[in-house]
Design a binder for these strands. Sequence first.
DNA 1: CTCGTTATTGAAAATTATTTTCATTATGAC
DNA 2: GTCATAATGAAAATAATTTTCAATAACGAG
Lengths: 154, 154
Amino acid sequence: MTKTKSSRQILSDLKSAGYRLTQSRAAVVRVIDEANGWLRPEQVHAQAKKHCPSIGLVTVYRTLALLVEHGYIRRIHFDDKCHGYARVELSHGHHLVCRGCSQTVEIAGTEDLKPLMKQVQKETGFVIEDHLLELVGLCRECQPNPTRPRSRHG
Amino acid sequence: MTKTKSSRQILSDLKSAGYRLTQSRAAVVRVIDEANGWLRPEQVHAQAKKHCPSIGLVTVYRTLALLVEHGYIRRIHFDDKCHGYARVELSHGHHLVCRGCSQTVEIAGTEDLKPLMKQVQKETGFVIEDHLLELVGLCRECQPNPTRPRSRHG
DNA sequence: CTCGTTATTGAAAATTATTTTCATTATGAC
DNA sequence: GTCATAATGAAAATAATTTTCAATAACGAG
C-alpha cells in the first residue's frame, strides 16, 4: 500500500518545499533509495561519496535528519549506539535479530498486526501511523551454542 | 504468564550465580523493581542514591548491564541517545509513542503476537525469545495539531 | 550567462551517553 | 577478625552525533 517514493520524486518534493537541490542531498537520497535494507550513517556516507566525493559525514547526518523529518525514511534503533536508517516502506518489514550472531532478517507480514493496531487505536484514542517490530531470538546455527555474547558494550 | 521476579529473588539468584550482594546492586534492583515503567540510567541513579548514597552512575550502568545480561530487565531504545530500562514483564508490553508530544504508553496484549511468532519460528528456524513492538502515532490531544516537532536532535 | 543573496556545506570543536582504567573499598569464605 | 578479590567510584577515554562558523554553491533576478 505505502508505495516508496523514487529518488527523483523525493528530491522534487524537497525542492517544492523550498529546499535547495544540492549534490550532497541527491547523493544521500540516491543511496537510501538504492539500498535494500537499512544503513548506518557511516555506510550512507561511504556510499554517497561515490556520487559526491566531497560530501562530509556531517552533511549525511543533516540530510538523514531532514529525510526523517519529512517522513521519507525512518530511524531504526540498535543495541549499541549506532542507529540505522531505511526507506519508510522497508522499515515496515519486521525485524528478526539473532542474539547469538547478530544477523538480522527482514520478515514480511504486516497484515498480522492489523487487528492489534485496530484494537489499540480504539482503546487508546491514538491514531497509529507507523510501527516497528523487533523479534529477538536465536537462529538455527546459534541454537546449539547459545552463548550470550558480552553485548557490544564491552 | 511471564511473572516478574521480586527484588529479593533477583538478588538471591545473582548470589547463587556467584555475584557479591552489594548495597549498590541491591539499590539498583530495588529501584527497577519499584518503578512501574521504564527509567533512564540517570533516573535509576537518582533513585538508587536514596537507598545507597555513595552509588555512582558508573555502577548503575554496570549493574543495569548485568541485569540485562541475565535477562531480568530489558533495554528500550529512544530517538535520542538515551536508553531506558524496564523489568522484563513491562518491556513485553507494547510501546505506543506519540509523534507529537513524545509521551510513551505501555500497552499489554502480547497474546496477539503469539500466532505471528509461531509462524516466524516455523519459517525461519529461529527460536524467538523476546520481542519489542513500537507503535508510532498521534495521541488524542496531538491529533488536531499534528505539528511535527523538530525531533530532539536539534 | 553573470551576479548577489543566502541556504548549505565541510572541518574542527563541542557535546553527551556510555565505557575503561585503576587505585581503593567492602563482601563473603575461613 | 582476617584475607583474597570482586566490586566500586572518580576521572579519563571513547564514539556517535551536534554545533559553530567561515567558505561555497544553488538559483532567482537582471
